[in-house]
């Protein structure tokens, strides 16, 4: 659930996702469920960490969410056709666990902010 991915530097990256009609997180109301944004953030983080590991010549493993904290959701959620833009900053990294701060917006309006740890 990531269409576009742009590396800014060692600490920051951004990604986009245009919500397709058949996205599995779309609700009966036609809106993306909040878990869908979390999945988009998790996949962005996994892509980013995977990229950095590859650059460092390390093995790229499957990524799992370790925890989610300080997550604030601003409803209403976006709909099919809308584009999510996520900015992600690496806050800390210890061994195989990376903590990121993420902010996802649609049309310049913040829909979610959170901290997430990814183990891989």
């Amino acid at each position: 659930m990531v269409d576009g991915f742009a590396l800014e530097d060692e600490q920051n990256c951004s990604s986009t996702l245009t919500i397709s009609d058949d996205n599995m997180f779309l609700d009966e109301s036609g809106r993306l469920a909040e878990e869908g944004i979390l999945e988009h953030i998790a996949q962005t983080a996994a892509a980013y960490v995977g990229h950095l590991r590859k650059q460092a010549g390390e093995e790229v493993n499957m990524g799992y969410i370790g925890d989610i904290k300080r997550c604030v959701v601003s409803h209403p959620m976006p709909m099919a056709g809308d584009t999510l833009t996520t900015r992600l900053t690496i806050m800390s990294q210890v061994g195989n666990i990376t903590m990121v701060a993420a902010e996802t917006a649609v049309n310049g309006q913040t829909k979610m902010t959170c901290r997430m740890k990814l183990a891989n």
Partner: peptide, 10 residues
């Protein structure tokens, strides 16, 4: 633990 250690570092 391994997760909260990352919180401390952050």
């Amino acid at each position: 633990d391994s997760l909260s250690l990352v919180d401390m570092v952050g």
